[in-house]
């Protein structure tokens, strides 16, 4: 396990710490009751780590995933992403962070059904304001990287589940994000295809990509080098696995 900086409020994370959460809490006001989904989560993830976040449903792992993905803002605590404190950023700035720093991979792929693979992968680059030509080049390159160089003009319904998830991964990687953030990436795939995707994750991790994956499957989590388990909104265990 990597060395951990003891972080106090007011500190700045070490340069190679990609993700740092400090006493992160998230509460939902459901009218009649206050749901405390996260009750103070402090984790540090370093560059080129491969981390799985586990936990039973209701443990807060989805909430943590949304916060790490900058889709949500914490009730209290700090969140630093790639040296920038993002826990108190405004809406548009969070959109920019999502665009530049985070590559999402969803359980249900979330591809645009009417657009071909290439256009789906181009999407983040459109919001980055890149020109059409360089977008195309970058998207094509990303598709080649996930082994779909010959499927660029196929629409999602012309692709298998595994191929769709590969398109989604290419889309996640196309902006060269700090972290690849995957939410149950094999949840909608059969076990063989799931293993292929895990092999691809391994490959990406080996080439230097930081990967954070939320899953409830022990087998899938076993592919990661480090497993963080949440229970009742706090970190229960945080274990490095033998590589």
């Amino acid at each position: 396990m990597s060395t951990v900086q003891l972080f106090r409020t007011g500190d700045t994370p070490l340069p190679d710490v990609i993700i740092l959460t400090h006493k992160l809490t998230r509460e939902y006001d459901m009218g009649s009751e206050l749901v405390r989904a996260l009750r103070g989560v402090s984790v540090q993830i370093q560059k080129n780590e491969y981390v799985a976040v586990m936990g039973p449903s209701g443990s807060g792992k989805s909430t943590l995933m949304n916060l790490i993905g900058c889709l949500d803002t914490p009730t209290s605590g700090e969140y630093w992403l790639n040296g920038q404190k993002v826990s108190d950023l405004a809406d548009d700035e969070l959109a920019r962070i999502r665009n530049k720093e985070i590559g999402f991979v969803f359980q249900t792929f979330n591809l645009l059904p009417r657009a071909d693979a290439l256009h789906n992968v181009e999407l983040p680059l459109i919001y980055a304001g890149m020109s059409a030509r360089s977008r195309r080049d970058r998207a094509a390159h990303a598709l080649q990287r996930v082994g779909l160089g010959d499927r660029m003009d196929h629409r999602p319904n012309e692709l298998s589940g595994g191929q769709r998830q590969r398109v989604a991964i290419a889309r996640a990687l196309v902006n060269e994000p700090s972290i690849l953030l995957a939410d149950e990436p094999t949840g909608n795939l059969d076990s063989t295809t799931g293993l292929e995707i895990m092999a691809l994750f391994r490959e990406l991790h080996d080439s230097g990509q930081t990967v954070v994956m939320v899953t409830h499957e022990q087998d899938i989590a076993a592919h990661a080098a480090r497993v963080i388990t949440l229970r009742d909104g706090v970190v229960a265990t945080d274990q490095a696995r033998a590589a």
Binding site: G69, L71, D91, D92, A95, R96, R98, N99, K100, F104, N110, L112, L123, P124, Y127, A128, R171, N175
Partner: peptide, 16 residues
């Protein structure tokens, strides 16, 4: 709605 959510997660701002 889902498409909008996706676009936002990929970096679309409100004005986009």
């Amino acid at each position: 709605t889902r498409e909008i959510g996706l676009r936002k997660s990929l970096g679309a701002r409100r004005r986009d």
